[in-house]
Amino acid sequence: MDPFVVLVLCLSCLLLLSIWRQSSGRGKLPPGPTPLPVIGNILQIDIKDVSKSLTNLSKIYGPVFTLYFGLERMVVLHGYEVVKEALIDLGEEFSGRGHFPLAERANRGFGIVFSNGKRWKEIRRFSLMTLRNFGMGKRSIEDRVQEEARCLVEELRKTKASPCDPTFILGCAPCNVICSIIFQKRFDYKDQQFLNLMEKLNENIRIVSTPWIQICNNFPTIIDYFPGTHNKLLKNLAFMESDILEKVKEHQESMDINNPRDFIDCFLIKMEKEKQNQQSEFTIENLVITAADLLGAGTETTSTTLRYALLLLLKHPEVTAKVQEEIERVIGRNRSPCMQDRGHMPYTDAVVHEVQRYIDLIPTSLPHAVTCDVKFRNYLIPKGTTILTSLTSVLHDNKEFPNPEMFDPRHFLDEGGNFKKSNYFMPFSAGKRICVGEGLARMELFLFLTFILQNFNLKSLIDPKDLDTTPVVNGFASVPPFYQLCFIPV
Protein backbone atom coordinates (compact mmCIF):
# COMPACT_ATOMS: atom_id res chain seq x y z
CA MET A 1 0.00 0.00 0.00
CA ASP A 2 1.18 3.52 -0.79
CA PRO A 3 2.88 5.07 2.30
CA PHE A 4 0.89 8.26 1.78
CA VAL A 5 -2.37 6.29 1.94
CA VAL A 6 -1.19 4.57 5.15
CA LEU A 7 -0.36 7.96 6.68
CA VAL A 8 -3.77 9.38 5.75
CA LEU A 9 -5.54 6.32 7.18
CA CYS A 10 -3.56 6.55 10.43
CA LEU A 11 -4.30 10.26 10.81
CA SER A 12 -7.97 9.67 10.02
CA CYS A 13 -8.19 6.93 12.66
CA LEU A 14 -6.48 9.19 15.19
CA LEU A 15 -8.90 12.00 14.38
CA LEU A 16 -11.94 9.71 14.72
CA LEU A 17 -10.61 8.29 17.99
CA SER A 18 -10.06 11.80 19.31
CA ILE A 19 -13.58 12.93 18.37
CA TRP A 20 -15.10 9.76 19.88
CA ARG A 21 -13.17 10.09 23.17
CA GLN A 22 -14.02 13.77 23.52
CA SER A 23 -17.71 13.29 22.72
CA SER A 24 -18.36 10.13 24.76
CA GLY A 25 -20.04 10.94 28.03
CA ARG A 26 -19.89 14.72 27.58
CA GLY A 27 -23.48 15.03 28.75
CA LYS A 28 -22.50 13.58 32.14
CA LEU A 29 -19.10 15.23 32.61
CA PRO A 30 -18.54 18.68 34.13
CA PRO A 31 -18.59 21.56 31.63
CA GLY A 32 -15.45 22.88 29.99
CA PRO A 33 -14.05 24.55 26.89
CA THR A 34 -14.66 22.78 23.59
CA PRO A 35 -11.60 20.65 22.74
CA LEU A 36 -10.00 20.52 19.32
CA PRO A 37 -9.47 17.10 17.71
CA VAL A 38 -6.20 15.40 18.70
CA ILE A 39 -4.71 18.34 20.65
CA GLY A 40 -7.70 18.94 22.96
CA ASN A 41 -7.51 22.18 24.98
CA ILE A 42 -3.73 22.55 24.94
CA LEU A 43 -3.91 25.89 23.11
CA GLN A 44 -6.01 27.28 25.98
CA ILE A 45 -3.45 26.27 28.63
CA ASP A 46 -0.20 28.07 29.40
CA ILE A 47 2.06 25.04 29.84
CA LYS A 48 4.56 27.17 31.80
CA ASP A 49 1.87 28.31 34.26
CA VAL A 50 -0.91 25.73 34.27
CA SER A 51 -2.23 26.92 37.64
CA LYS A 52 -2.97 30.43 36.36
CA SER A 53 -4.79 28.99 33.35
CA LEU A 54 -6.92 26.78 35.61
CA THR A 55 -7.86 29.77 37.76
CA ASN A 56 -8.96 31.73 34.69
CA LEU A 57 -11.02 28.80 33.38
CA SER A 58 -12.67 28.27 36.79
CA LYS A 59 -14.09 31.80 36.56
CA ILE A 60 -15.93 30.71 33.41
CA TYR A 61 -16.87 27.08 34.12
CA GLY A 62 -17.01 26.91 37.92
CA PRO A 63 -15.06 24.89 40.50
CA VAL A 64 -15.37 21.57 38.62
CA PHE A 65 -14.67 21.48 34.89
CA THR A 66 -13.35 19.20 32.16
CA LEU A 67 -10.22 19.69 30.06
CA TYR A 68 -8.50 17.59 27.40
CA PHE A 69 -4.72 17.45 27.27
CA GLY A 70 -4.35 15.85 23.87
CA LEU A 71 -6.53 12.74 24.04
CA GLU A 72 -6.33 12.65 27.84
CA ARG A 73 -9.53 13.69 29.61
CA MET A 74 -9.06 15.49 32.92
CA VAL A 75 -11.50 16.81 35.48
CA VAL A 76 -10.19 19.87 37.33
CA LEU A 77 -10.98 20.65 40.98
CA HIS A 78 -10.60 24.32 41.90
CA GLY A 79 -11.25 25.65 45.40
CA TYR A 80 -11.13 24.27 48.93
CA GLU A 81 -14.69 22.93 49.08
CA VAL A 82 -14.45 20.70 45.99
CA VAL A 83 -10.89 19.61 46.81
CA LYS A 84 -11.96 18.57 50.32
CA GLU A 85 -15.12 16.89 49.06
CA ALA A 86 -13.16 14.82 46.54
CA LEU A 87 -9.83 14.02 48.20
CA ILE A 88 -11.02 13.72 51.81
CA ASP A 89 -14.77 12.99 51.89
CA LEU A 90 -14.54 10.66 48.86
CA GLY A 91 -10.92 9.73 49.50
CA GLU A 92 -11.11 6.10 48.37
CA GLU A 93 -12.85 6.93 45.09
CA PHE A 94 -10.31 9.67 44.24
CA SER A 95 -7.22 7.76 45.42
CA GLY A 96 -5.96 6.53 42.05
CA ARG A 97 -2.87 7.92 40.35
CA GLY A 98 -3.30 9.71 37.04
CA HIS A 99 -1.91 8.40 33.76
CA PHE A 100 1.85 9.09 33.34
CA PRO A 101 3.23 7.21 30.31
CA LEU A 102 6.83 8.24 31.03
CA ALA A 103 6.63 7.20 34.67
CA GLU A 104 4.94 3.95 33.69
CA ARG A 105 7.80 3.27 31.29
CA ALA A 106 10.41 3.97 33.98
CA ASN A 107 8.72 2.44 37.03
CA ARG A 108 6.74 -0.35 35.35
CA GLY A 109 3.92 0.12 37.87
CA PHE A 110 6.17 -0.50 40.89
CA GLY A 111 6.99 1.79 43.82
CA ILE A 112 4.85 4.18 45.81
CA VAL A 113 4.34 7.33 43.73
CA PHE A 114 2.90 5.97 40.48
CA SER A 115 1.50 2.58 41.53
CA ASN A 116 -2.19 1.85 42.04
CA GLY A 117 -4.57 -0.58 43.72
CA LYS A 118 -3.45 -3.28 46.16
CA ARG A 119 0.24 -2.72 45.40
CA TRP A 120 0.07 1.00 46.18
CA LYS A 121 -1.90 0.45 49.40
CA GLU A 122 0.49 -2.17 50.77
CA ILE A 123 3.71 -0.36 49.84
CA ARG A 124 2.37 2.96 51.13
CA ARG A 125 1.23 1.43 54.43
CA PHE A 126 4.63 -0.20 54.91
CA SER A 127 6.55 2.98 54.00
CA LEU A 128 4.50 5.12 56.38
CA MET A 129 5.00 2.65 59.20
CA THR A 130 8.75 2.43 58.56
CA LEU A 131 9.25 6.20 58.31
CA ARG A 132 7.37 6.59 61.58
CA ASN A 133 9.43 3.86 63.26
CA PHE A 134 11.88 5.94 65.25
CA GLY A 135 13.93 2.92 66.29
CA MET A 136 15.60 1.90 63.02
CA GLY A 137 19.19 1.02 63.81
CA LYS A 138 18.66 2.37 67.35
CA ARG A 139 18.71 5.89 65.96
CA SER A 140 15.58 7.95 65.54
CA ILE A 141 14.86 9.81 62.34
CA GLU A 142 15.06 13.02 64.36
CA ASP A 143 18.62 12.05 65.36
CA ARG A 144 19.50 11.70 61.68
CA VAL A 145 18.01 15.09 60.79
CA GLN A 146 19.83 16.76 63.69
CA GLU A 147 23.12 15.17 62.65
CA GLU A 148 22.66 16.48 59.12
CA ALA A 149 21.69 19.92 60.41
CA ARG A 150 25.00 20.10 62.31
CA CYS A 151 26.87 19.11 59.14
CA LEU A 152 24.92 21.73 57.20
CA VAL A 153 25.94 24.42 59.71
CA GLU A 154 29.61 23.39 59.39
CA GLU A 155 29.40 23.56 55.58
CA LEU A 156 27.90 27.04 55.82
CA ARG A 157 30.75 28.10 58.13
CA LYS A 158 33.19 27.18 55.37
CA THR A 159 31.75 30.00 53.24
CA LYS A 160 33.50 32.38 55.70
CA ALA A 161 30.65 34.91 55.47
CA SER A 162 31.37 35.52 51.78
CA PRO A 163 28.55 35.73 49.19
CA CYS A 164 27.28 32.32 48.10
CA ASP A 165 24.47 30.65 46.19
CA PRO A 166 22.88 28.27 48.76
CA THR A 167 21.35 25.93 46.16
CA PHE A 168 23.94 23.14 46.30
CA ILE A 169 24.40 23.02 50.08
CA LEU A 170 20.65 23.16 50.74
CA GLY A 171 20.18 20.33 48.23
CA CYS A 172 22.76 18.10 49.92
CA ALA A 173 21.19 18.23 53.38
CA PRO A 174 17.73 16.69 52.68
CA CYS A 175 19.25 14.24 50.19
CA ASN A 176 21.63 13.02 52.88
CA VAL A 177 18.76 12.56 55.34
CA ILE A 178 16.96 10.32 52.84
CA CYS A 179 20.22 8.44 52.16
CA SER A 180 20.66 7.90 55.90
CA ILE A 181 17.12 6.53 56.22
CA ILE A 182 17.32 4.29 53.14
CA PHE A 183 21.00 3.24 53.11
CA GLN A 184 22.10 3.84 56.75
CA LYS A 185 24.75 6.18 55.40
CA ARG A 186 25.25 9.89 54.99
CA PHE A 187 27.82 11.18 52.53
CA ASP A 188 30.42 13.90 52.64
CA TYR A 189 29.26 16.79 50.45
CA LYS A 190 32.30 16.23 48.20
CA ASP A 191 31.85 12.45 47.86
CA GLN A 192 31.81 11.64 44.13
CA GLN A 193 29.12 8.95 44.41
CA PHE A 194 26.92 11.42 46.29
CA LEU A 195 27.62 14.17 43.74
CA ASN A 196 26.62 11.81 40.91
CA LEU A 197 23.32 11.05 42.68
CA MET A 198 22.65 14.76 43.25
CA GLU A 199 23.42 15.50 39.60
CA LYS A 200 20.93 12.89 38.37
CA LEU A 201 18.21 14.07 40.77
CA ASN A 202 18.66 17.74 39.83
CA GLU A 203 18.79 16.99 36.12
CA ASN A 204 15.60 14.93 36.35
CA ILE A 205 13.76 17.77 38.08
CA ARG A 206 14.88 20.20 35.36
CA ILE A 207 13.72 17.80 32.63
CA VAL A 208 10.37 16.99 34.29
CA SER A 209 9.67 20.72 34.60
CA THR A 210 9.88 21.36 30.85
CA PRO A 211 6.87 21.61 28.50
CA TRP A 212 8.39 18.78 26.42
CA ILE A 213 7.64 16.26 29.17
CA GLN A 214 4.01 17.44 29.27
CA ILE A 215 3.86 16.80 25.53
CA CYS A 216 5.39 13.33 25.94
CA ASN A 217 2.83 12.39 28.58
CA ASN A 218 -0.06 13.61 26.45
CA PHE A 219 1.23 12.03 23.24
CA PRO A 220 3.07 8.89 24.46
CA THR A 221 3.93 7.71 20.93
CA ILE A 222 6.67 10.34 21.04
CA ILE A 223 8.49 8.35 23.74
CA ASP A 224 9.50 5.59 21.33
CA TYR A 225 9.92 7.42 18.05
CA PHE A 226 11.30 10.89 18.78
CA PRO A 227 14.59 12.09 20.29
CA GLY A 228 14.42 14.45 23.25
CA THR A 229 15.20 15.02 26.91
CA HIS A 230 12.75 12.29 27.92
CA ASN A 231 15.39 9.76 26.87
CA LYS A 232 17.89 11.36 29.26
CA LEU A 233 15.28 11.21 32.02
CA LEU A 234 14.74 7.48 31.47
CA LYS A 235 18.51 6.91 31.34
CA ASN A 236 19.04 8.76 34.64
CA LEU A 237 16.28 6.78 36.34
CA ALA A 238 17.79 3.52 35.10
CA PHE A 239 21.18 4.62 36.49
CA MET A 240 19.66 5.36 39.90
CA GLU A 241 17.80 2.04 39.98
CA SER A 242 20.99 0.16 39.13
CA ASP A 243 22.86 1.97 41.90
CA ILE A 244 20.12 1.21 44.44
CA LEU A 245 20.02 -2.45 43.38
CA GLU A 246 23.75 -2.75 44.13
CA LYS A 247 23.16 -1.36 47.62
CA VAL A 248 20.27 -3.82 48.12
CA LYS A 249 22.61 -6.71 47.26
CA GLU A 250 25.17 -5.40 49.79
CA HIS A 251 22.43 -5.26 52.42
CA GLN A 252 21.34 -8.83 51.69
CA GLU A 253 24.87 -10.03 52.49
CA SER A 254 25.30 -8.06 55.73
CA MET A 255 21.79 -7.84 57.18
CA ASP A 256 20.95 -8.90 60.75
CA ILE A 257 17.25 -9.78 60.77
CA ASN A 258 16.99 -8.83 64.46
CA ASN A 259 18.64 -5.42 64.05
CA PRO A 260 17.37 -3.58 60.96
CA ARG A 261 19.60 -0.61 60.14
CA ASP A 262 17.50 1.26 57.61
CA PHE A 263 14.59 1.20 55.16
CA ILE A 264 16.22 -1.42 52.92
CA ASP A 265 16.73 -3.81 55.83
CA CYS A 266 13.11 -3.35 56.96
CA PHE A 267 11.88 -4.09 53.44
CA LEU A 268 14.11 -7.17 53.08
CA ILE A 269 12.84 -8.50 56.43
CA LYS A 270 9.26 -8.00 55.22
CA MET A 271 10.15 -9.89 52.01
CA GLU A 272 11.52 -12.77 54.09
CA LYS A 273 8.33 -12.95 56.15
CA GLU A 274 6.18 -13.08 53.00
CA LYS A 275 8.36 -15.35 50.87
CA GLN A 276 5.68 -18.09 50.89
CA ASN A 277 3.06 -15.65 49.58
CA GLN A 278 3.07 -15.82 45.79
CA GLN A 279 0.92 -12.67 45.60
CA SER A 280 3.18 -10.60 47.87
CA GLU A 281 3.96 -7.07 46.73
CA PHE A 282 7.23 -7.10 48.67
CA THR A 283 9.69 -7.82 45.89
CA ILE A 284 13.12 -6.55 44.87
CA GLU A 285 11.50 -4.54 42.05
CA ASN A 286 9.17 -2.76 44.46
CA LEU A 287 12.03 -2.13 46.91
CA VAL A 288 14.27 -0.54 44.27
CA ILE A 289 11.55 1.69 42.78
CA THR A 290 10.20 2.70 46.20
CA ALA A 291 13.69 3.74 47.32
CA ALA A 292 14.10 5.74 44.09
CA ASP A 293 10.69 7.36 44.66
CA LEU A 294 11.64 8.39 48.20
CA LEU A 295 14.94 9.85 46.99
CA GLY A 296 13.34 11.79 44.17
CA ALA A 297 10.36 13.08 46.14
CA GLY A 298 12.23 13.81 49.35
CA THR A 299 15.19 15.79 48.06
CA GLU A 300 14.25 18.55 45.63
CA THR A 301 10.96 19.59 47.25
CA THR A 302 12.52 20.15 50.69
CA SER A 303 15.66 21.82 49.34
CA THR A 304 13.63 24.21 47.16
CA THR A 305 11.42 25.11 50.13
CA LEU A 306 14.52 25.82 52.26
CA ARG A 307 16.03 27.95 49.49
CA TYR A 308 12.82 29.92 49.17
CA ALA A 309 12.56 30.28 52.96
CA LEU A 310 15.98 31.94 53.20
CA LEU A 311 15.08 34.33 50.38
CA LEU A 312 11.86 35.34 52.17
CA LEU A 313 13.73 35.79 55.45
CA LEU A 314 16.22 38.05 53.65
CA LYS A 315 13.33 40.03 52.20
CA HIS A 316 11.65 40.38 55.61
CA PRO A 317 14.39 41.00 58.22
CA GLU A 318 11.77 41.88 60.84
CA VAL A 319 10.41 38.31 60.56
CA THR A 320 13.93 36.88 60.84
CA ALA A 321 14.58 38.94 63.97
CA LYS A 322 11.42 37.60 65.64
CA VAL A 323 12.36 34.00 64.82
CA GLN A 324 15.87 34.49 66.20
CA GLU A 325 14.49 36.10 69.36
CA GLU A 326 12.23 33.06 69.86
CA ILE A 327 15.17 30.69 69.27
CA GLU A 328 17.25 32.60 71.85
CA ARG A 329 14.44 32.53 74.40
CA VAL A 330 13.35 28.89 74.00
CA ILE A 331 16.55 27.10 72.93
CA GLY A 332 19.47 29.40 73.64
CA ARG A 333 22.99 28.86 72.29
CA ASN A 334 24.16 25.87 74.32
CA ARG A 335 22.02 23.05 72.88
CA SER A 336 20.67 21.90 69.55
CA PRO A 337 17.06 22.53 68.48
CA CYS A 338 14.74 19.52 68.70
CA MET A 339 11.16 18.80 67.66
CA GLN A 340 9.88 19.26 71.22
CA ASP A 341 10.81 22.93 70.87
CA ARG A 342 8.28 23.48 68.09
CA GLY A 343 5.34 23.45 70.52
CA HIS A 344 6.95 26.33 72.42
CA MET A 345 7.80 28.35 69.28
CA PRO A 346 4.49 29.45 67.72
CA TYR A 347 6.02 32.27 65.67
CA THR A 348 8.71 30.06 64.11
CA ASP A 349 6.08 27.39 63.40
CA ALA A 350 3.88 30.02 61.75
CA VAL A 351 6.80 31.22 59.60
CA VAL A 352 7.53 27.69 58.35
CA HIS A 353 3.85 27.18 57.49
CA GLU A 354 3.61 30.57 55.79
CA VAL A 355 6.67 29.83 53.66
CA GLN A 356 5.01 26.66 52.38
CA ARG A 357 1.67 28.37 51.83
CA TYR A 358 3.13 31.41 50.10
CA ILE A 359 5.51 29.64 47.70
CA ASP A 360 2.85 27.12 46.57
CA LEU A 361 5.63 24.75 45.55
CA ILE A 362 3.61 22.23 43.50
CA PRO A 363 0.63 24.28 42.26
CA THR A 364 -1.38 21.38 40.81
CA SER A 365 -0.01 18.45 42.81
CA LEU A 366 0.47 15.13 41.03
CA PRO A 367 -2.75 14.16 39.22
CA HIS A 368 -5.12 11.68 40.84
CA ALA A 369 -7.57 9.35 39.11
CA VAL A 370 -10.96 8.00 40.12
CA THR A 371 -10.94 4.29 40.95
CA CYS A 372 -14.57 3.72 39.89
CA ASP A 373 -17.44 5.59 38.23
CA VAL A 374 -18.13 8.47 40.62
CA LYS A 375 -21.18 10.69 40.95
CA PHE A 376 -19.78 14.04 42.01
CA ARG A 377 -21.88 17.20 42.30
CA ASN A 378 -24.47 15.86 39.85
CA TYR A 379 -21.80 14.87 37.33
CA LEU A 380 -20.71 11.34 36.47
CA ILE A 381 -16.94 10.93 36.28
CA PRO A 382 -15.98 7.66 34.54
CA LYS A 383 -13.54 5.24 36.18
CA GLY A 384 -9.92 6.02 35.32
CA THR A 385 -10.50 9.72 34.59
CA THR A 386 -7.51 11.85 35.58
CA ILE A 387 -8.20 14.41 38.34
CA LEU A 388 -6.20 17.64 38.38
CA THR A 389 -6.23 19.44 41.74
CA SER A 390 -5.44 23.15 42.03
CA LEU A 391 -3.58 23.48 45.34
CA THR A 392 -3.05 27.17 44.51
CA SER A 393 -6.79 27.74 44.82
CA VAL A 394 -6.63 26.38 48.39
CA LEU A 395 -3.33 27.83 49.63
CA HIS A 396 -4.12 31.26 48.18
CA ASP A 397 -7.81 31.40 49.14
CA ASN A 398 -8.45 35.04 50.07
CA LYS A 399 -11.25 34.20 52.51
CA GLU A 400 -9.00 31.99 54.64
CA PHE A 401 -5.80 33.99 54.09
CA PRO A 402 -6.35 37.77 53.80
CA ASN A 403 -3.95 39.19 51.19
CA PRO A 404 -2.85 35.71 50.06
CA GLU A 405 -0.21 37.10 47.70
CA MET A 406 1.61 38.67 50.66
CA PHE A 407 4.08 36.80 52.87
CA ASP A 408 2.62 37.18 56.37
CA PRO A 409 3.17 34.70 59.26
CA ARG A 410 0.05 36.14 60.93
CA HIS A 411 -1.95 33.91 58.59
CA PHE A 412 -1.10 31.13 61.09
CA LEU A 413 -1.31 33.08 64.37
CA ASP A 414 -4.36 33.97 66.46
CA GLU A 415 -4.82 37.30 68.22
CA GLY A 416 -2.92 36.01 71.25
CA GLY A 417 0.13 35.05 69.18
CA ASN A 418 -0.59 31.32 69.44
CA PHE A 419 -0.14 29.04 66.45
CA LYS A 420 -3.38 28.65 64.49
CA LYS A 421 -4.03 25.57 62.38
CA SER A 422 -5.82 25.85 59.06
CA ASN A 423 -7.64 23.13 57.12
CA TYR A 424 -6.59 25.02 53.99
CA PHE A 425 -2.91 24.18 54.59
CA MET A 426 -2.39 21.57 51.86
CA PRO A 427 1.15 21.93 50.46
CA PHE A 428 1.50 18.13 50.65
CA SER A 429 -1.91 17.60 48.96
CA ALA A 430 -4.65 15.85 50.97
CA GLY A 431 -6.52 12.60 51.42
CA LYS A 432 -5.19 9.10 50.82
CA ARG A 433 -2.51 10.30 48.38
CA ILE A 434 -1.06 12.92 50.72
CA CYS A 435 2.75 12.94 50.53
CA VAL A 436 4.12 9.92 52.42
CA GLY A 437 7.09 12.00 53.58
CA GLU A 438 5.03 14.86 55.03
CA GLY A 439 6.16 14.26 58.61
CA LEU A 440 9.82 14.01 57.62
CA ALA A 441 9.66 17.13 55.44
CA ARG A 442 8.06 19.19 58.21
CA MET A 443 10.72 17.99 60.65
CA GLU A 444 13.52 18.89 58.24
CA LEU A 445 12.15 22.36 57.52
CA PHE A 446 11.78 23.23 61.21
CA LEU A 447 15.14 21.81 62.31
CA PHE A 448 17.25 23.00 59.38
CA LEU A 449 15.89 26.55 59.61
CA THR A 450 16.25 26.79 63.39
CA PHE A 451 19.79 25.38 63.26
CA ILE A 452 20.74 27.95 60.59
CA LEU A 453 19.19 30.93 62.39
CA GLN A 454 20.64 29.82 65.73
CA ASN A 455 24.14 29.98 64.24
CA PHE A 456 24.00 32.69 61.57
CA ASN A 457 22.64 36.07 60.69
CA LEU A 458 21.54 36.35 57.07
CA LYS A 459 22.92 39.22 55.01
CA SER A 460 21.58 40.25 51.62
CA LEU A 461 23.90 41.59 48.93
CA ILE A 462 21.34 44.25 48.01
CA ASP A 463 18.74 46.25 49.88
CA PRO A 464 16.11 43.73 51.10
CA LYS A 465 13.38 45.93 49.62
CA ASP A 466 14.86 45.30 46.17
CA LEU A 467 14.93 41.50 46.46
CA ASP A 468 12.66 39.77 43.96
CA THR A 469 10.72 36.89 45.52
CA THR A 470 8.47 36.27 42.52
CA PRO A 471 8.45 32.52 41.82
CA VAL A 472 9.84 31.20 38.59
CA VAL A 473 7.02 28.91 37.45
CA ASN A 474 8.41 26.14 35.27
CA GLY A 475 5.36 24.01 34.53
CA PHE A 476 5.77 21.63 37.48
CA ALA A 477 7.02 23.61 40.48
CA SER A 478 7.41 27.19 41.67
CA VAL A 479 11.09 27.85 42.36
CA PRO A 480 12.75 30.99 43.73
CA PRO A 481 14.74 33.28 41.45
CA PHE A 482 18.53 33.12 41.69
CA TYR A 483 20.03 34.98 44.63
CA GLN A 484 23.13 35.07 46.82
CA LEU A 485 23.56 35.79 50.51
CA CYS A 486 26.14 35.81 53.29
CA PHE A 487 25.94 33.59 56.38
CA ILE A 488 27.40 35.71 59.19
CA PRO A 489 28.28 33.64 62.30
CA VAL A 490 26.54 34.99 65.41
Rank of each mutant, 00 (worst) to 15 (best):
F168Y: 14
G27R: 10
L453D: 03
L131Q: 03
G437A: 07
V64D: 02
F219L: 11
I327F: 01
G98S: 12
E274H: 09
I60Y: 07
T371C: 09
R442K: 11
L391Y: 03
L71T: 14
Q22L: 11
Y68G: 05
L87R: 02
Y358C: 15
I264H: 01
V473I: 12
K249N: 09
K270F: 08
E155R: 06
F134Y: 13
G40M: 00
T386I: 09
L295I: 15
D265F: 01
N259D: 12
G27I: 15
S336G: 09
A297R: 09
N231R: 14
I169Q: 09
K28D: 12
R144H: 10
F65H: 04
V75I: 07
C179Y: 14
I141K: 05
L461G: 12
V6P: 10
M345I: 04
D89I: 09
E122M: 10
V374I: 11
V394H: 02
Y483D: 01
T34C: 13
L90Q: 15
P33N: 01
I42W: 12
I222S: 05
F226M: 15
I223L: 13
G228V: 04
M129H: 14
D293L: 03
I359Y: 02
R144T: 13
D349A: 08
M136S: 13
L458E: 01
T392K: 08
K420P: 01
S115Y: 02
R150Y: 12
Y225I: 10
N231K: 14
R442P: 06
I112P: 04
D224R: 14
I45E: 03
P409S: 02
H396E: 04
R124C: 01
A441S: 06
F183T: 06
G117D: 07
I387P: 00
M74L: 10
I462C: 15
F100T: 13
L67Y: 04
E281Y: 13
P481D: 06
N398D: 14
P33Y: 00
M345H: 01
A106H: 11
K59I: 07
P464R: 13
R26K: 14
A321P: 03
V76R: 01
Y68R: 12
P31E: 05
G431R: 01
F4G: 10
M136T: 13
I213K: 07
